[in-house]
Amino acid sequence: MKQITATEVQNMLKSGSALNIIDVREVDEVAGGKVPGAVNIPLGLIQFKMNELDKNKEYIIVCRSGGRSGMAAQVLESYGYNVTNMIGGMMSWAGEME
């Protein structure tokens, strides 16, 4: 499974890169702030919502600490999606939030 750090994601956003970020935390967790532009798909819904994702795009998967996003990344990867887990999750995020 590919991995990326929160700092790398922050730098990519600062440089203007268009990223596809999926936050797999629960709705109440995301209400406290998320990576700008991230789409919330709670981990429990990922298998039901994956058909809405494009296998030709690359997705960065985010959660609170990196555990749930790792599980989501494994599931998506097993179905042929191009995914990268943001290690450390939002606990490592020092950038702006929305």
Rank of each mutant, 00 (worst) to 15 (best):
Asn85Tyr: 04
Ala31Glu: 15
Ile61Leu: 01
Gly32Thr: 15
Cys63Ala: 14
Ile60Asp: 00
Ser69Thr: 14
Glu77His: 10
Ala72Val: 03
Ser78Trp: 07
Lys49Val: 08
Ala73Arg: 03
Met50Cys: 12
Val62Ala: 07
Lys34Trp: 00
Lys55Asp: 06
Ile46Thr: 00
Val27Cys: 12
Lys34Phe: 02
Ala38Arg: 01
Ser78Tyr: 11
Asn40Tyr: 07
Asn82Phe: 03
Gly33Asp: 08
Met86Thr: 06
Glu29Phe: 03
Ile87Tyr: 11
Ala38Tyr: 00
Gly67Gln: 14
Ala31Pro: 02
Lys55Ala: 06
Tyr59Ala: 07
Val39Asn: 07
Leu76His: 04
Val75His: 05
Ala73Asn: 05
Tyr81Thr: 08
Val83Asn: 02
Asn40Trp: 08
Pro36Cys: 15
Ala38Val: 04
Ile41Asn: 01
Ile61Cys: 00
Asn82Gln: 13
Gln47Pro: 03
Gly70Ser: 12
Glu29Ser: 11
Ala72Trp: 01
Val35Ser: 04
Phe48Thr: 13
Tyr79Cys: 05
Ile87Gly: 04
Met86Asp: 03
Tyr59Met: 08
Thr84Asn: 02
Tyr79Leu: 11
Ile46Leu: 02
Lys49Phe: 13
Ile61Tyr: 00
Val75Trp: 04
Val62Asn: 07
Glu77Gly: 13
Leu53Asn: 06
Arg68Tyr: 08
Ser78Phe: 13
Met86Gly: 01
Tyr79Ile: 02
Arg68Gln: 10
Gly67Arg: 12
Lys57Asp: 05
Gly66Ile: 02
Glu52Cys: 10
Gly32Val: 10
Gly33Tyr: 13
Gly70Cys: 08
Ala31Lys: 15
Val62Tyr: 08
Asp54Thr: 07
Ser78Val: 09
Asp28Thr: 10
Gly66Trp: 01
Asn85Gln: 10
Gly33Thr: 10
Pro42Gln: 15
Ser69Gln: 08
Ala73Pro: 02
Gln74Ile: 04
Glu52Leu: 12
Asn85Phe: 04
Glu58Gly: 06
Val27Met: 13
Asn82Met: 07
Asn56His: 10
Ser65Pro: 08
Ala31His: 07
Ile46Ser: 00
Ser78Cys: 14
Asp54Ala: 06
Gly37Ser: 09
Val35Leu: 15
Ile87Thr: 11
Gly67Asp: 06
